[in-house]
């Protein structure tokens, strides 16, 4: 096997200025636009009712008591435990004590839930629409540069380092040549690279909590119920399981043997 032939493709140097830079600039501008569109589309979260706040925080109180039980004396712990467990079992902390035991309402019929879903939809739209538009635009606008008969995608840059053929799908999407050196990058691929790589630029321009990046949004959609009571969960069941957790907890007072601990560590 001899040395592989070095591929030289003659391309207009103006390609660099008229394709590479425009795509990058357009991507940055779209990101900024997306940020402001998301800000505009955001609805203020709906206010919780007094009962809901109480329900949630009473549950949190039980969680705190369970995790930090050791800082208070056994007697103080026992009295709190008795109070919370009986309250949890009676359902006296529930926002809607009459609704105990009924099946949780259909999330679709709950207006608060619908609003949350609308918010998610809006986020999705703000993410998907520009993405689709720009991809179509790049495909339509920059694909006319004929370089070889089989490929009608322009090739932009030659990376200054060699790569394995596995990168072909990433760097030359839409180019139908098997033998082309992987170091050539097509315009569509450049679009994808900027799509995922512009986050630091947005951070610089818009501050760290911008909505320009779709990756962060996708992350947020993975667990929409993070924080707060999980949507659709029956609070009564949560209370009962928390009561069970509290009942089995073993109390180990933190002040037990503290003098020796302190003297051993400091003296």
């Amino acid at each position: 096997m001899g040395q592989p032939v070095v591929q030289t493709i003659h391309r207009d140097p103006a390609l660099f200025y008229w394709i590479l830079l425009p795509i990058t600039v357009v991507m940055i501008l779209t990101g900024i636009l997306r940020h402001y569109a998301t800000v505009l589309l955001q609805t203020t979260p709906k206010k919780q009712t007094l009962g809901k706040i109480r329900e949630h925080r009473s549950l949190m109180r039980g969680v705190h008591l369970r995790t930090n039980a050791n800082v208070i004396s056994p007697s103080a712990f026992e009295s709190r435990k008795a109070y919370l467990v009986s309250g949890y079992k009676d359902g006296s902390f529930l926002a809607d004590p009459e609704g105990r035991g009924k099946a949780p309402p259909n999330p679709m019929s709950d207006p608060a839930m619908m609003e949350g879903m609308m918010g998610m939809m809006k986020g999705n739209v703000a993410m998907m629409v520009p993405q689709t538009l720009i991809m179509g635009w790049i495909n339509a606008f920059f694909s006319g540069f004929v370089i070889s008969k089989s490929s009608h995608h322009c090739l932009l840059v030659k990376l200054p380092f060699p790569l394995t053929p596995q990168f072909k799908a990433m760097l030359q999407s839409g180019v139908g040549t098997r033998d082309l050196d992987v170091r050539w990058v097509s315009s569509l691929s450049w679009y994808f690279l900027t799509l995922f790589g512009l986050q630091p630029v947005y951070q610089f321009i818009l501050g760290s909590d911008n909505a320009a990046n779709q990756m962060a949004q996708q992350m947020a959609q993975m667990n929409p119920a993070a924080g707060g009571l999980g949507a659709g969960n029956d609070p009564d069941k949560l209370f009962l399981s928390e009561a069970e957790n509290l009942e089995v907890i073993e109390h180990d007072y933190i002040l037990k043997g503290i003098e020796e601990r302190l003297l051993a560590s400091l003296a």
Binding site: S73, S75, L262
Partner: peptide
Amino acid sequence: SDLPLPTLSTVERLHELATAK
């Protein structure tokens, strides 16, 4: 009581530590 009482020597040693600190 929730815990046994501290002994005389413990109290004294803690006092020494507190004074030094």
